[in-house]
Simulated scan of single mutants.
Amino acid sequence: MRLTCTINGEPREVDGLWEGESLLYVLRERLALPGSKNACEQGECGSCSVYLDGVLVCSCLVAAGQAEGRAVVTVEGLAPSEEELHPVQAAFVEAGAVQCGFCTPGLIVATHDLLARNPSPSDAEIREALAGNLCRCTGYEKILDAVRLAAAS
């Protein structure tokens, strides 16, 4: 099976897909985009969050074939260039919300999505928007600080 789609603004083709292959697997293993992480493979942790046609999804739950002809944006695609971080990415670094880094890509994409919809969220709105993302290192306070910092910038 062949997949033809747009990844981070670039047309891409992947040949030899098997029927049950996830979008996450294609991104990480076939396209060398390791930002989205493979953690739970059940859509519970949010580490693999990406945009699919502008909608936040867990890429571990999306069959690669479902991305045919569609646009995918990963954490790598948020930055304006390879030399410059997106303001959300920079806020996570500045706030120290990147401990082991495993949950960070999903949290950054989810924060990007939240701030696109609500540029000045309350703490309750931040917590609700990030409820699908699990972190085992930071205790969440630095993550909340990062979201507040990104919202202020």
Score class of each variant (00 low, 15 high):
residue 2 R to K: 06
residue 4 T to Q: 07
residue 4 T to N: 03
residue 6 T to E: 14
residue 6 T to L: 10
residue 7 I to Q: 11
residue 8 N to G: 05
residue 10 E to M: 04
residue 11 P to M: 11
residue 11 P to S: 01
residue 13 E to W: 03
residue 13 E to K: 12
residue 13 E to Q: 11
residue 14 V to F: 11
residue 14 V to H: 11
residue 16 G to R: 08
residue 17 L to Q: 01
residue 17 L to H: 11
residue 22 S to N: 00
residue 23 L to I: 12
residue 25 Y to H: 06
residue 30 R to D: 02
residue 31 L to D: 12
residue 31 L to Y: 14
residue 32 A to T: 09
residue 34 P to W: 15
residue 34 P to C: 07
residue 35 G to H: 02
residue 37 K to L: 11
residue 37 K to C: 05
residue 37 K to F: 06
residue 40 C to L: 13
residue 40 C to A: 15
residue 40 C to H: 09
residue 44 E to A: 02
residue 45 C to G: 12
residue 45 C to H: 12
residue 45 C to D: 10
residue 45 C to A: 13
residue 46 G to E: 03
residue 46 G to F: 01
residue 46 G to N: 04
residue 46 G to H: 01
residue 46 G to W: 01
residue 47 S to A: 06
residue 50 V to S: 05
residue 51 Y to I: 07
residue 51 Y to R: 11
residue 52 L to A: 14
residue 54 G to N: 09
residue 54 G to F: 03
residue 55 V to S: 11
residue 56 L to N: 13
residue 57 V to W: 10
residue 58 C to I: 01
residue 59 S to N: 05
residue 61 L to E: 04
residue 61 L to T: 13
residue 63 A to V: 14
residue 63 A to Y: 15
residue 64 A to Q: 01
residue 64 A to R: 07
residue 67 A to E: 09
residue 68 E to W: 05
residue 68 E to L: 14
residue 70 R to K: 15
residue 71 A to Y: 08
residue 71 A to I: 02
residue 73 V to A: 08
residue 73 V to E: 03
residue 74 T to M: 13
residue 74 T to K: 00
residue 74 T to A: 09
residue 75 V to Q: 08
residue 76 E to D: 07
residue 77 G to D: 09
residue 77 G to A: 00
residue 80 P to M: 02
residue 80 P to R: 03
residue 80 P to E: 01
residue 86 H to A: 10
residue 88 V to S: 05
residue 89 Q to I: 01
residue 90 A to K: 13
residue 91 A to W: 10
residue 91 A to V: 00
residue 93 V to R: 15
residue 93 V to L: 15
residue 93 V to H: 08
residue 94 E to P: 14
residue 95 A to L: 07
residue 97 A to R: 02
residue 98 V to A: 08
residue 99 Q to S: 09
residue 100 C to A: 08
residue 101 G to W: 12
residue 103 C to K: 01
residue 103 C to L: 09
residue 103 C to V: 02
residue 105 P to A: 07
residue 107 L to I: 15
residue 108 I to Q: 01
residue 109 V to E: 08
residue 110 A to D: 03
residue 112 H to T: 06
residue 112 H to V: 04
residue 113 D to C: 04
residue 114 L to A: 10
residue 114 L to C: 15
residue 115 L to K: 01
residue 115 L to E: 08
residue 117 R to L: 05
residue 118 N to Y: 07
residue 118 N to S: 15
residue 120 S to V: 07
residue 120 S to C: 07
residue 122 S to N: 00
residue 122 S to Q: 03
residue 122 S to C: 06
residue 125 E to T: 12
residue 125 E to L: 10
residue 127 R to C: 02
residue 128 E to D: 12
residue 128 E to K: 15
residue 128 E to N: 03
residue 129 A to E: 04
residue 129 A to L: 03
residue 129 A to D: 07
residue 131 A to C: 02
residue 132 G to D: 08
residue 132 G to W: 12
residue 132 G to Y: 13
residue 132 G to K: 07
residue 133 N to F: 15
residue 134 L to I: 15
residue 134 L to G: 12
residue 135 C to E: 05
residue 135 C to Y: 11
residue 135 C to H: 05
residue 135 C to I: 00
residue 135 C to D: 07
residue 136 R to I: 04
residue 137 C to K: 10
residue 137 C to V: 11
residue 138 T to G: 05
residue 140 Y to Q: 10
residue 141 E to Y: 06
residue 142 K to H: 09
residue 142 K to F: 09
residue 143 I to A: 08
residue 145 D to N: 14
residue 146 A to W: 07
residue 148 R to T: 03
residue 148 R to N: 00
residue 150 A to Q: 01
residue 150 A to H: 08
residue 151 A to V: 12
residue 153 S to P: 06
residue 153 S to Y: 12
